[in-house]
Design a protein around this nucleic acid. Structure first.
Lengths: 225, 225
DNA sequence: CTTCTATAACGAGAATTCTCATCTGCAATT
DNA sequence: AATTGCAGATGAGAATTCTCGTTATAGAAG
């Protein structure tokens, strides 16, 4: 597995390189955006680790230009910036995961492994419906610009809805996707979670997005009577 | 998708056939073990639904004989028998899932879909280590013949251990397999669950099976100082 | 052998997930 | 329009999962 690390702080770059090499990855480093971009073009990497704060070409531009080359290599963004704005821009520009510095090396390694293993998600990294926005990478959700906190099951349910908008989803379909297959449909957990979700994403907002189709299931749609 | 239903009660057989056909499966029915076995040999099914209480050749024998033909078709056993013994025998004989009658049709359908989708598990359906036995299909665990109740995370952790016996597993390996990849290893959940598991499968039993490898992780092994 | 330090075990309580019983309201029928 | 039966909504509480702070212990160093 070949990995490119684009990072200007030499200490950090070497630390990452050394750590990855101990795990038997072949690692190249680039100390600025220009050389990083160049290396990404001439070599075929399995993963690129990209710092956003780098000289010559800013990280986000490197990201965009790698993607505009139709290069689908997984990119793990590493950034000291905590602001949601930068992260969202990163996601919009096509990074696959991100980590804010400082990070524990084992957390970093876990993400690297995950990205190398993960089947490429060619879909756009942001899902939108009306003013509801969901980012599958960060599991972050906003409606009308307001951040909405969801638990992990609630998130899973919403993501499934967002991936199938304007389509009626039966309880069976939902339970098979959001829960696992041994799921026992005797209970009404799905209803309960739809209820939880409604309280968080529809209550206090217009239009309502989750609608009940009596006798069939539920639908996520902005234009419904 | 072609499905064979081996079931002697004509009413039940027709009910299942009709229901599956509504879902666009092609369904054949056999009313006894002999014809069922014969049909399984001459045709190539994607799934077999097998009642255990059938005339001519008992269900369990049909199951064993299908398997002894090296036929790996998924088999969903349907049985009125509630006794653990029959179910365990069924699993030992190579069925992939089972349902006890009476069942809700939608539950049945969910299982059918799951089996048709599932990648074939060629491994033996029972995992053993010393007197600890785990059945991945039913998620049932016993030690020294005594049934042990595990929650789903505890079960997941134990299954991972049982699939990798006598091998040191790091916390990272565990968290990536038992939890999902966005898992944040800042916390000690893994330790906590190992602790829960020890209380259930080691406390009051000898030898101890879960051992700590200081600085590395944990190992499941019957012979350790 | 004793002390020290890093690592693991554990307890307690918070948050999430799930179950179940009851309530509400739609829509079919009279 | 009123009745009724049933699907869905909801509240309450149980079970599970997770977090975090404290205590215990192994192994290294003195």
């Amino acid at each position: 597995m070949r990995i490119l690390v684009i990072e200007d702080e030499i200490k950090v770059a070497n630390f990452i390189k050394k750590g990855l090499e101990e795990e038997h990855y072949a690692v190249d480093t680039a100390l600025d955006g220009e050389s990083g971009l160049y290396m990404s073009e001439v070599n075929d990497y399995d993963l690129i680790v990209l710092d956003l704060m780098i000289p010559k070409i800013p990280g986000l531009d490197v990201l965009r230009r790698i993607r505009s080359n139709k290069n689908k290599v997984p990119i793990l963004v590493v950034t000291a910036k905590h602001s949601a704005e930068d992260i969202v821009k990163g996601l919009d520009s096509g990074c696959d995961d991100y980590l804010t510095k400082p990070f524990e090396f084992k957390v970093f390694l876990a993400r690297v492994r995950a990205l190398l293993r993960r089947e490429r998600v060619d879909a756009e990294p942001i899902l939108k419906l009306a003013d509801l926005i969901l980012s599958p990478v960060t599991h972050r959700v906003t409606r009308g610009g307001k951040e909405i906190e969801l638990t992990s099951k609630e998130y899973g349910l919403l993501e499934y809805f967002m991936r199938n908008p304007n389509k009626v989803l039966t309880r069976t379909m939902i339970s098979e996707h959001v829960w696992d297959y041994h799921f026992d449909s005797m209970t009404n957990v799905v209803d309960v979670y739809v209820n939880y979700l409604r309280k968080k994403i529809d209550k206090g907002f217009e239009p309502k997005l989750i609608h009940t189709i009596r006798g069939v299931g539920y639908i996520l749609s902005p234009d419904r009577p």
